Amino acid sequence: MTADLIAVVLLLAVTAYACAGGTDYGAGFWDLTAGGTERGRRPRWLIDHAMGPVWEVNNVWLIFVLVVMWTGFPTLFQAVFSAMWLPLALAVVGMVLRGAGFAFRKPTRRLAGRRLFGAVFAVASVVTPFFLGAAVGGIASGRVAPGTTASADAWTNPTSLVFGLVAIATTAFLGAVFLTGDARRFEEPELVGYFRRRALGSLGVLTVLAVVTGFVTHEDSPYVWHGLTHGLGLLFVAVAGAAALATGLLLVRTPGTWLRVAAVGVVASAVLAWGMAQRPYLLPTSLTVADAAGSPATLTWLAFVTLVALVIVVPAVVFLYWLDAHGELEELTEADLRRQGGTTGDGAPPDL
């Protein structure tokens, strides 16, 4: 019973990372496709201002996923990281380069340096979700099992490739939807239309890829395909479809809070559908939840830690998101500091 509870926690943590981290990766995708220096100046300005306050905190969900895998399901952790070490290592390199590019491009004064760091940030924002999606696809295809050695087939098969493309399209969709709302908050009507068009386009691409995924999993991942077309898996697929329709309708109207809720509903429902489709396996069809679980004492303590995180960490993260969404985390400009602290006659802050 405890093992099933921890498996649900793991799935919910993956869902949270897909939604929160996916939004940041999507912002990087639109940074990459914004165009040249002059053409992409305004979209990149919005991306910097929207991501700045919260981009680091989204990795909390990924850390939690790794902790739950490592402590709660050590056999799963060993099998996945043994068979998928290369794509996962490439994803980690992408995360590091992405963070470094985003952190250094703004304070860099030279134009060439800003372009270099901006390119690193943007390219890594596309590469990272692709490799993460490819690893998930390898798991869904049943090619990863305890004792499986690393091979290219584990993450270059049809299911892995289509999952990697779905991951990129998903992040682009989330990023465009959230940037549409941020443009409205910053009172930039041109950017509202700019990102709304891209949100609609990425939603269309994601819909096509969802259909392609159905055909691919039918042939390459029969167990997961069966789970997606029956029971709880089918229910969450239906919810994802309804949320996608609602998102499309909201996008053609004035964007608001419900637009973001609907978009998150699309992605969250899709991830939950995948999780339900694999039941009772963590690695179809070789490793069940019960077989992968750690010792009962470890699972009990992990459940306790999860409860503590639920009470302390989650409200703090949600409050941070709320502050960001309401514009309470904006950077202070030099003019703001002068208004608050006063200035000397030469424009410098007064001596303390």
Rank of each mutant, 00 (worst) to 15 (best):
V67H: 02
A244V: 08
V166A: 14
F173M: 11
A13G: 06
G142N: 03
C19L: 14
P315M: 02
R115G: 14
G227C: 09
P315G: 02
L5P: 02
M95T: 11
E187P: 02
T333N: 06
D24K: 04
A348F: 15
A316Y: 13
F319R: 14
V264F: 11
L161V: 13
R197L: 11
G347R: 10
A246R: 15
D48Q: 14
V314H: 06
V264A: 11
V123S: 04
V127W: 09
G21R: 00
F173L: 11
P146Q: 01
A18T: 07
T170M: 12
F186W: 10
G35C: 05
P315K: 00
I168Q: 08
T128I: 03
A199I: 07
L76S: 05
T2R: 11
D336Q: 07
L165P: 09
V96Y: 00
G181H: 06
L165Y: 12
G72I: 00
G164L: 05
I139W: 06
S151Y: 10
W30S: 03
L352A: 15
A135T: 02
V120R: 04
H230A: 14
R338P: 02
G256S: 05
A112S: 14
R185I: 03
F304K: 13
G204R: 09
I168G: 05
A122P: 08
L228P: 01
G22N: 00
A270S: 15
R185V: 04
V216M: 04
G347C: 12
E187Y: 10
W45H: 14
